[in-house]
């Protein structure tokens, strides 16, 4: 019983991390029609920033670190979007290719700066004590991660549905040309959303550090999971990304625990099923 509960919680916490990764990816895709292949690298960059900061000073609160790393990664993303992506407005394939190039640059830079060995990230001290609930023992940090993902989801939802910025983003997602015609500054919106997506990924990377640790190839491990999440959930749908993240979190965690060698293949199955039955994804709209 303890096995199932612990693995269940592990699934939820991985799902939460995936949501932090995939929600930004999905948002960027929905608005900019851009498959941002740098997204895994943004996440990894966050993890390395977090690992460095928290190992250097164990008194730092993980929240402070996550926010500052998020801002730093958002700034890098913003520069990239302004300096490179905007030059390729009419070349969607070129945009994808430069995001791929950028991901190579970031991951190789990480390798050069932090070396080839895995860097473990300590769990914050105040979250190390296990939580006892209904007679079971839970690792507190993983519970907190699930809470973070839910908070992020609600915040993003409110941002999109209840604010002026959100209304402009939704208009852009529906029809960028029309949005431009009615005077919405779509170019600025692109930069904001790209920064936002990169920032969430960076902060997610910090929060993922204590359970994943920082290592070369983390980006290549995370990106396909995010891709599968958005293929499952439907590209450009926030709720789809939320549901897809937890589905992938569960399948991957239980797959790894029960059939360690086949976990990757098991990930295929829901993706194939969804593509066969609903190619637009669980909650995607056709043509999106």
């Amino acid at each position: 019983m303890q096995f199932w509960i612990i693995q269940g919680l592990n699934s939820l916490s991985l799902g939460g991390l995936l949501f932090l990764l995939a929600s930004g990816f999905s948002l960027i895709f929905g608005l900019m029609r851009l498959a941002n292949l740098t997204h895994g690298a943004f996440f990894m960059l966050g993890t390395y920033f977090g690992a460095t900061a928290m190992r250097a000073n164990s008194d730092l609160s993980i929240w402070t670190v996550a926010v500052s790393a998020g801002v730093a990664v958002a700034a890098i993303g913003g520069l990239f979007e302004r300096l490179v992506l905007t030059r390729l407005k009419t070349n969607p394939l070129g945009q994808v290719l430069v995001t791929l190039g950028m991901s190579f640059i970031i991951s190789d830079a990480c390798l050069a700066l932090w070396g080839g060995d895995s860097i473990p990230v300590p769990t914050p001290q105040n979250l190390q004590a296990p939580t006892r609930l209904f007679g079971f023992v839970f690792p507190t940090y993983r519970l907190v991660l699930v809470g973070c993902a839910i908070t992020a989801a609600i915040t993003l939802y409110l941002l999109l549905e209840r604010t002026r910025l959100g209304a402009m983003i939704r208009a852009g997602v529906d029809d960028a040309q029309m949005a431009r015609a009615v005077g919405i500054p779509v170019a600025n919106l692109f930069t904001i959303v790209f920064c936002l997506g990169a920032g969430i990924a960076g902060a997610g990377g910090v929060l993922g550090g204590p359970i994943l640790s920082a290592y070369p190839g983390l980006d290549a491990d995370m990106l396909p999971l995010a891709l599968i999440v958005v293929i499952l959930g439907g590209i450009g749908s926030l709720l789809g990304a939320f549901i897809g993240s937890f589905i992938v979190g569960f399948i991957y965690t239980f797959g790894t625990a029960l059939f360690p060698e086949l976990a990757y293949i098991i990930l295929f199955l829901p993706m194939i099923l969804v593509l066969a039955l609903r190619p637009q994804g669980l909650l995607g709209r056709l043509g999106a």
Binding site: A35, L37, V96, P224, L227, I235
Partner: peptide, 30 residues
Amino acid sequence: IALRASGLGFLMITLALSQVLWGLAYRMSN
């Protein structure tokens, strides 16, 4: 599988499929 989508969807599916094989080559070490 990949031709269920086109354009960027196709690109993402081919990438995901190949990453799965890559992970398999790493992990199925026996």
